[in-house]
Each structure stands twice: as structure tokens, then as C-alpha cells.
Amino acid sequence: MDDGRIVVSALTKHYRGVTAVDDLSFTVEPGRVTGFLGPNGAGKTTTLRMLLNLVMPTAGTATIGGRRYLDLPEPDRVVGAVLEASSAHKGRTGRNHLRACCLTTGLPLTRADEVLDLVGLGPAADRKVKGYSLGMKQRLGIAAAMLGDPQVLILDEPANGLDPEGIRWMRQLLQGLATNGRTVLVSSHLLSEMQALADDVVIVAAGRLVRQGAVADVLASMGGDHRVRVSTPETEKLTAALAGAGATVTADGPGSLVISGVTAAAVGDTALAAGVPLHHLSAESPDLEDVFLDLTHAKAAIR
């Protein structure tokens, strides 16, 4: 099997007046789900389309397993892509759409039925695509991408239009594919979605690379304060004790404090030592969505 590594190097796309993608380089490894993250207009769709020879780059190259998409002898056996919710003729049934794809690439027609089952679209297979919901079109798109049993999967904002159940289904599907050693590249404008799905992230804004790495590392490097929230009848006594431990304390309503600069454990220990009763103690994760927005906003989100 091909190694399925995606390499984007110095990719650039100018449209009249807009630089949609600006000297962008990153790599995507097999065996992992990689989130391609950025606000609307960041250049994600343009990048993915250049990778697939649909949009012609102004400069730079993109390869999959060492080859340009155009140079793959049987691209459908190497790469499956879901770019817009299915790109099927509205007047054709889902099954016939998939069969047309099979005929084009020389796959047996039975493959259409197999992928219909895989995405759970069997009951709607003989209805015309124009009657499909957005979620069903996404499933049809995923089905088409899976026809050639490809090593690499590329999906552009696949969660759009899926209900929570559909999102969970897709997450399991993609993570399962990555576990089998496949390369999975998924774009999104929501960090929270990627936190739940991806192993690695590539963050872009205004067509440029902002961060790339394992999700945990990137999140850690993005900073944001870990905070501890407590409730106590003796706020003043606790504030004084915590100040001695080097924490920053702010009042947050009657009997409630928000503490930063120390761990939750340290807060509990300090309270015990000071003989202050705690009615509530919780550690709050940083609001990474805010940090993400700050990080990318500086690059002019929507152009």
C-alpha cells in the first residue's frame, strides 16, 4: 500500500484581488485523523481543491503518497474526497449516482450497494437525490468517497448538516479508518469538533499556517488560563490564604471565587490548611474556542 502521506508545499492561490492561500506548507500523516482548522474564508476549501487538481495553484505543489493527484493512475483507489455535500445529479437516485461512479472507474456495480450499507443510506438508495436532506447528501458523498476503498480520505466540513447522531457516527467511522492506517484529513471551522475527533491539527487563517501539531500539544501551546472555581462561606479568609500561595483570586458573586495560577489540588490543600469549608470546587478548562478565535482573528478572519 502507498504510504498515503499528504505533503503541501508553498501552495499559493491568487484570485482576482484575494490571496486565498498564501505560501502554505504542511504535512498530513497516515494512521491519524488530521483536523484542518480555520475560520470561514481561511482558504481550507481552496487548499483541498488544489490538492485534488480541481483548482489550479498559482504556485507550489501538493502530493499524496509522493504523487500529484493528476499523476495517480487510479485516483479513486488512493484518495476518496467529500467536498460539497455529494455533488450528485439531483434527478438521479443515490444508488444510480454511485453506480455511475463505479462504471467510470471500472469498479463492480455491487460496490455501490456495499457502500450504501456502510453509510446507512440503504433505505433511501432508490430515491432521487433532490429529496435528500443535507445529512443524507453528506452520507452519499462519504459513500462515493469510500467506493474505491482508498488509503486517503479528504473531507471538507463534513459535519455540516449532520445531526448529533450523524456526527458521532462519522467520528467513529473516521477514527476507525485512521486506526486501520489510513490518512484522514478533515476540515472544520469549529475547534470543539476537532478536539473530539482529531489526533493532529493544522490551523490556518488568512491562507497562512498558524499552528501544526498533535492536538494536545497545539492546545497546550495555545495557552489560555486553567481556572478553579470554589464556593465557600468564608471568602475573605480563603482569599487571604490563597494570596499567600501565589494565586490570583477574583470574586465571582456572593460566596464564589475564581482562582487562577494554581492547580485545583493546591486550592483544596490551602483551604484545608486554613480550616475553610468548601461547598464546591471545580477546575475549568480554558475556553479554547476563544483562544482559537483570538489566534486567528489577528489574521483577518473573513476577507
Binding site: 480541481l54 450528485a88 434527478g91
Partner: peptide, 14 residues
């Protein structure tokens, strides 16, 4: 017109 070009050119990039 029917926006099927993406599917078509993905399957046959030449």
C-alpha cells in the same frame, strides 16, 4: 449546471 463537475473531475482528473 447540475454541479456534478467535482465528482466527474475527481474520478477522471485528466
Amino acid at each position: 449546471h447540475q454541479q456534478t463537475a467535482t465528482t466527474t473531475f475527481l474520478l477522471t482528473p485528466h
